[in-house]
Design a protein around this nucleic acid. Structure first.
Length: 376
RNA sequence: GCCGCUGUAGCUCAGUUGGUUAGAGCACCAGAUUGUGGAUCUGGGGGUCCCCCGUUCAAGCCGGGGCAGCGGUA
């Protein structure tokens, strides 16, 4: 029987890769953008909308789901897919990002992380083994190793220690996954090493030697700036096997994405389309649009008349402005929808440009407009 | 009519024994946001301190008169 999880590279354009990841729950077209559904929901959207927007896979989060409703409970309820009514693939983050983002509420040891719940203050521990066990209880199709993600800039000592700890945890996650994982499920390793190319090389090569199903680049877009991020990517991807998917974690803006694809990244996730949407910012081919700005108050134009997404196509900017200014629920719903659709449209356009071997032209065509605010 | 209280930013209010350029929260106008704590952060514009007169080197603050609002009262 062939491995039900498999990455196939279809074609390339420069270093940009067009591919497909086969999973038992369906294919993931790459380069892919994975909407973030931390707590078992892509916030403010129905699963059907996420699917219709073009997303093949969504994220869930180990840390959040273990606190509430609890991994064992989700398992008793039939797993995360059934629970949230998403039948496509799900990738779960391991909790590594919370190692960084909850820095006032956690303690780190060789064995794992002790978190204080942000919900009720209760104490929870998560080892690499427990993180994998939880991800298996949730039923995640793609699971992530537990890692230590640090804020940048960081000292050499700090970056080295976090990278080396992440490698040791990678090994432990691999062994735990062999015990808990089911056929068709995949486990990704995570490259760390801040912006130090030598650390990144070591991390990538050692992970590659462990033979993961895919490789993530973690610890970027955390304060280092885009130039440093892209330089780090250049120095990292060369040391990862081209036969496996490469995932740039937590990234990013539309321009981050097109630049990272140009360097050979296959998968992305980011809270930006949904979080920004909840706060009034929309993404369009013409750049970012802040619907809270007064200039939209009487603008009868939609966000993007050419969009296939009703939220972007059928509602006036004036109405979206009003909803956001009034704090109405529909505002975040419509903008999360429009942004999720835009990100998927962006990925579709990226895939098409690679397929037609004109990716460099695509980047130069759209880079400037995507990088700033919409021209007024 | 009389008694009391109040009047400071769009709103709700603070403002010391009179002392530099009168503040806050919200609202407003913008900017940030990258493996989501439905969060947060950063800037900005905005004043006839109800009006007039007086005291004083100096008044949002003290005195007199007026106006307005609220409450009480025969």
């Amino acid at each position: 029987m062939s491995d039900p999880f498999a990455f196939s590279l279809i074609t390339t354009s420069g270093d940009a890769r067009l591919g497909e990841i086969a999973t038992p729950r369906g294919a993931i077209r790459t380069p892919a953008f994975m909407p973030v559904g931390t707590a078992g929901t892509v916030k403010a959207l129905y699963p059907d909308q996420v699917k219709a927007a073009g997303a093949d896979i969504v994220l869930g989060n180990t840390y959040h789901l273990m606190l509430r409703p609890g991994a064992e409970r989700v398992a008793r309820l039939g797993g995360l897919h059934k629970f949230m009514r998403w039948d496509g693939p799900i990738l779960t983050d391991s909790g590594g990002f919370q190692v960084m983002s909850l820095k006032g509420l956690r303690k780190l040891t060789e064995d794992g992380v002790t978190f204080q719940s942000h919900i009720d203050g209760s104490t929870h521990t998560m080892s690499p083994e427990r993180s994998i066990e939880i991800q298996c209880l949730l039923g995640a199709d793609i699971q992530m190793q537990l890692d230590e993600c640090i804020e940048l800039p960081a000292t050499q000592e700090r970056a080295t220690a976090a990278m080396e700890l992440s490698l040791r945890w990678a090994e432990r996650c691999k062994r735990a996954f062999e015990r808990f994982g089911k056929p068709g499920q995949a486990l990704f390793g995570i490259v760390q090493g801040a912006t130090d190319l030598e650390l990144r090389r070591r991390s990538a090569q050692e992970l590659a030697g462990m033979n993961f199903d895919g490789y993530a680049v973690g610890g970027l877009a955390v304060g280092e700036g885009q130039d440093a991020m892209l330089a780090t990517l250049d120095g990292t991807l060369a040391h990862l096997p081209s036969s496996k998917p490469r995932y740039l974690m937590g990234v990013g803006t539309p321009v981050d994405i097109i630049e990272a694809v140009a360097r050979g990244i296959d998968m992305f996730d980011c809270v930006m389309p949904t979080r920004s949407g909840r706060h009034g910012q929309a993404f369009t081919w013409g750049g970012k649009v802040n619907l809270k700005n007064a200039r939209h108050a009487e603008d009868t134009a939609p966000l993007d008349a050419n969009s296939m997404c009703p939220a972007a196509r059928d509602y006036s900017r004036a109405y979206l402005h009003h909803l956001m200014k009034s704090g109405e629920y529909l505002g975040p719903m419509l903008l999360s929808w429009a942004n999720t659709a835009f990100y998927q449209d962006l990925m579709a356009a990226i895939r098409q440009a690679i397929a037609e071997n004109r990716y460099a032209d695509f980047v130069s065509e759209h880079r400037a407009a995507l990088s700033g605010n919409e021209a007024v």
